[in-house]
């Protein structure tokens, strides 16, 4: 099968690739660009670990082909914070509130929740739980994730 030329913007930087059409966006990010913060769990759209932002909206990167990202913008967890020295306020809140244990699911949660908080800056607990219904976490029991989101929401509103 012929390769396709791919040119897109990842975390604000231009990126290129020569890809087989069957290469998933998740695998392109991890294996071609070395952005291994995007985690791959179930690879059929259930666990949410591979969630990235595609043109600003959270999507499952395991349910897109890399070629489909040609000409589009992708944001991964590596691009969330402004600098390497400082965490994004939501990352900071996850850390402080113990919103993670093993951390495997965390990038997917973060990439889902940042656009959610932009749309809904003061969510109720129920709204938070609905927003994360598409992300599985096997460690925390979700309680501290919800706490972290509340903490981040309060801080982000104060900025």
């Amino acid at each position: 099968m012929e390769n396709h030329q791919l040119s897109l913007v990842v975390n604000g930087q231009p990126a290129e690739g020569q890809v087989e059409p069957r290469l998933l966006l998740s695998d392109f990010l991890r294996h071609e660009l070395g952005l291994t913060g995007t985690h791959v769990g179930c690879e059929h759209g259930v666990c949410g670990a591979c969630t990235v932002q595609f043109d600003g909206q959270p999507v499952r990167s395991c349910l897109m082909l890399a070629v489909q990202a040609n000409g589009h913008e992708v944001l991964t967890v590596e691009g969330l914070a402004d600098s390497r020295e400082q965490l994004h306020p939501l990352q900071q809140a996850f850390w402080e509130a113990h919103g993670l244990q093993c951390g495997f699911c965390t990038p997917g949660f973060l990439m889902t929740l940042v656009p959610f908080l932009a749309e809904n800056p003061d969510p109720s607990e129920r709204e938070i739980r609905e927003a994360i219904s598409g992300n599985l976490c096997r460690c925390t029991g979700y309680q501290n994730i919800v706490t972290a989101v509340r903490l981040a929401a309060d801080r982000l509103r104060a900025i």
Partner: peptide, 11 residues
């Protein structure tokens, strides 16, 4: 690679 090979066309 997860899916088997295919020809990709994007009209």
């Amino acid at each position: 690679m997860k899916p088997p090979p295919f020809k990709y066309l994007a009209p």
